[in-house]
Design a binder for these strands. Sequence first.
DNA 1: CACATATTTGGCAGCGCTGCCAAATATTAC
DNA 2: GTAATATTTGGCAGCGCTGCCAAATATGTG
Lengths: 336, 336
Amino acid sequence: MDQDDDHKHRNEVTLREVSAAVGLGMSTISRVLRNHGSFSQATRDRVMKAVEELGYVPNRIAGTLASSGSNLVGIVIPSLHNIVFPDLLSGAALTLNPIGFQTVIAVTDYDLEQEQKVIQSMLAWRPAAFLVAGLEHTPRTRAMLKNSGVRIAELLDTDDEGIDIVVGFSQREAGAVSARHLVERGYRRIGYVGPEFSFDPRARKRFEGFSAVVAEAGASVVETELMGRTSSTEAGRAALERMLARNPDLDAVYFSNDDFAVGGLFHCIANNIAVPSQLAIMGFNGLDIGRFAPQPLTTLRTPRTEIGEIGARMVMEQGGAKIVDVPFELVRGATT
Amino acid sequence: MDQDDDHKHRNEVTLREVSAAVGLGMSTISRVLRNHGSFSQATRDRVMKAVEELGYVPNRIAGTLASSGSNLVGIVIPSLHNIVFPDLLSGAALTLNPIGFQTVIAVTDYDLEQEQKVIQSMLAWRPAAFLVAGLEHTPRTRAMLKNSGVRIAELLDTDDEGIDIVVGFSQREAGAVSARHLVERGYRRIGYVGPEFSFDPRARKRFEGFSAVVAEAGASVVETELMGRTSSTEAGRAALERMLARNPDLDAVYFSNDDFAVGGLFHCIANNIAVPSQLAIMGFNGLDIGRFAPQPLTTLRTPRTEIGEIGARMVMEQGGAKIVDVPFELVRGATT
DNA sequence: CACATATTTGGCAGCGCTGCCAAATATTAC
DNA sequence: GTAATATTTGGCAGCGCTGCCAAATATGTG
C-alpha cells in the first residue's frame, strides 16, 4: 500500500486513489461517502471496502473549500479554571457533537485584546457558528463578528446589548436577588469578596445589583475585597480572614462565587466561627462542593450547562436575533 | 462595498478582490500577508490599508489546502469535569497559542468508541499534531493515529506502551507511594474510594499499585467503593458514609482523587469524626480545595499543567518517540 | 421491440489560496 | 553609459474535494 506514492507530500490516500482502486469515478465515491445523491447498494459496498482497505480519511479541508460550510463551531471563553466554563462547553458539545459539529475552543484569559486575536484567527477557519462568553468585546471584535456573517451567540449575561443571539440571565438581577435574601434575613453589615472588576464584568454587574439592593434596604456593604483572577479556595479563605481582621462586626459576607465562598467557610470552620449565627456566608453558582459541604452553602444555582445547550441550539437555527433568559435559582443552604 | 458581489456564495472578501483593489497580483498580497518572501515597504502599506478597508479575513481552509499543513492541534480528553483535564488543556494552550497553533478539543466521556469517532473526525482536518489523554485506545484508533503520520503525544500515564510520545508519570507508582505513606504511618485497615475501574484505567492502575504495597506490608484494603464517573464531593461523602456504616473499624481511607477526598473530609467534619486520629484521609491530585481545607489534605500533587506543556512542546519538535516522566510529589497535610 | 422514464455514473470547473519560476524593475559596479 | 546583480512582482498550476449537468445504464410500458 506504500509502493505507488510519488505524490506531492505525504502518503496521503486521496479520493482519486480510492476511485482508481474501485474503478469508479470520483464523484461516485464522494456521493457514497457522504451518503448523498444516488448509487447502488453494490457500489456502496465496493466503495466502503476499498475505503477500509486503503485507510482513506476524507479531507474536510478540501471538502469545506469546495462546498463552503465547515462543521467547526468556535467557542471562546475567558478561562478553564472556573467550572462555569467547562460546564458551558459540555452543554454546547452535548448539543453540537451529535449533529456532526466539532468545537474549536479558545481561551482568552479575561483579556479582550486576546479575545480579539483568537476570534480573528478562528474566523480564518470559517466556522459555522460562534459561541462567546460575555457581552464585552472590543469594537473591532464586534465588527469582525458582525461582518463575518456567521451566527453568534453571546452567553451568560443578558444585561447589555448583544450582537446577535444572547443566552443567559441578568447578572444584576442575580446580585439583587442575593442581596434581597441577605437583607430579608436581617443581615445589615455585609462584606463582599470577588475578583477585580476590571476583568470580570459579570462579577461587577452582580455586585452593582447587589449593592443597590443593600443600599435601598438601608443596610450597607461595609467591606470589599477584590482579588486576582483565580477563583480559588485559597483566595476566598485569605480574603475573609483579612476582612474580619479589619472589621470583626460583619454579620454576612457575599462571595462572588462558590469557590471563594467555600474558602470562606473553611476559614470559619478552622477558626470556630459559627455559621450563620456569628457570620453568614453566601456564594454564587451552586457548585457541588458547596452543596455537600459540612454545612450546605446558600448560593444561586446558575444554569450553565443549559445555557451552553441553548446557545448551541439557537446558533444552529434560522431566525432573527433573540434574547433567551435562562433562570437561575436561589438555593437556601445552612450558611445564611 | 456590497454592490459588486455577484459571487458564488456570500459577500466574502477574497484575496482576488484585495488584489484588484490594490492593483497588485495575488501572490504579492499573499506574500505581504504572510510576511514571507520579499516586497517593498510601500507595497506592504498599501496592502495593509486595503485589507483593513475591505475587512479581508484570510481563508485558512484554502491556505492550508494549498500549502498542506494546518495550525490545528487536536486535543482529546475524557471529560471537562475533572480539573485534571482543564489543567492539561491550559498547559497545552499556553505552549501552542504563542507559536500560532489553535486547539481543537474533543471530549470522549470516558468512552473509547467515542474517542475513536472524534479522532477520526479530527483527522479529517489534518491537524498538525495530536494530544490524547491516556494510553488506552481501540486497536482501530491506534491504527488510524499511526497511519495518519501526525505527531501524537499520549498524556498522564507512563505505565503502558505508547504510540509515539508519552508524557506523564507512573500511575502504579503513584498508588504505591500513597500506600507506602499510609502504611508507614501505621494505618492497617484501609478503605478505597474511586471511580468504576472500567472507565478510568488510570484510577485502576493507581489502585493496583496501592493495593500491592498494602498487601506486601501485611495490611489490607478492607473495603472498596466504586462509583459512577463524576468525581464529585457528593459521591465521596456518600461513599465514605456507606463504607463506615459497613465497617466502622477502618483507620484510613484512600480516595482516588481530591474531590472525593474532600467529600470524605466533609463527612467527617459534619459527623465529628476526628481526622486523622479516628480516621485518616488521603487524596490524589493536589487540588487547591484540599490544600486550603480546614485541615489540609494529604495528597499527591500531580504536574498536570506541566504535562500539557511538555506534551505540546514535544509534539512540535523533531525526533523519535520518547517517554518523559514528569514527577509527582507527596504533599503531607494534616489528614494522615 | 421501440420508446419513455427512473436510476446510476462520470467529467469538468472551480472553491481561495500557495509554491514555483519567470518577468519586470530597481540598484550597484565599472 | 552598459552590464551584472539584487529586489520586487505576476502568472499559472494545482491542493482534494463538491456541485452541476450530461451520459450511460436499468427499468417499465404498450
